[in-house]
Write a protein that binds this DNA or RNA. Structure first.
Lengths: 107, 107
DNA sequence: TTCACCTGCAAGAAAAAACTAGCATGTGCC
DNA sequence: GGCACATGCTAGTTTTTTCTTGCAGGTGAA
């Protein structure tokens, strides 16, 4: 659950979510957790590209990763969504904007 | 008020909001409507840059513009925020992802 | 051993976004 | 007229993001 974010955190979450591939990743993982290679096949994108997007999603705290050994001993990296709820309104943006650290201390 | 968005629309809104300058613009306009030049001074950024961000905000439907004549006859372009409320959850993303048109018809 | 599957990483190309600099228009006022 | 303010637009640079290609490692099974 998300309550208050600082501005940079919120900006990162929004930037991360604002991508078709990553939206589909969230959608796929919300349906069922999966490991990288299988997910890449499901989404029809290359594995390196998927890994890039997964890394961003994980960095934003929107998905989690866990290693698991398959029945035949292969190391699989399973990803799953992290439950989140962010509400965007002009007011919530205004509040978050107060804590932006992007240089310039607005005097 | 926002209810359901198609995926592309949501992606655009998120991408638009995911920028420090634009977050500050929303914050400033939520506080009080303003015209371009004054807003640029308030935020401490160049006018052309602000116009770029305002154009994106307007394209995403997050702010509106209206021309107004000042007391001394100058044409001022006033901007104001549009009330919006977008809630982001894994489910809402999943729903929106269904209507993404970014090429590939996932067979 | 070879094949099929899993992971990770990094270098470089391609595309998109952000930003600057500059010049155009117009107004009213001194 | 010249100054100060408002708007607009565009060309070009810089920066960031996205994506591809290709290689590395590991496992179990035929």
């Amino acid at each position: 659950m998300e309550t208050s974010h600082n501005g940079d955190e919120l900006a990162r979450i929004l930037a991360t979510l604002a991508n078709p591939h990553r939206m589909r990743v969230i959608a796929a993982l919300a349906h069922e957790r999966n490991y990288v290679s299988a997910l890449a096949r499901e989404l029809g994108i290359s594995r390196p590209l998927l890994q890039l997007h997964l890394a961003k999603l994980e960095a934003a705290g929107l998905v989690t990763a866990a290693f698991e050994l398959s029945a035949d001993g292969k190391a699989m990296k399973y990803y799953d969504t992290v439950p989140f709820a962010v509400t965007l309104t002009p007011q919530s943006i205004a509040l978050a904007a107060r804590t932006l650290t992007t240089e310039e201390g607005d005097s």
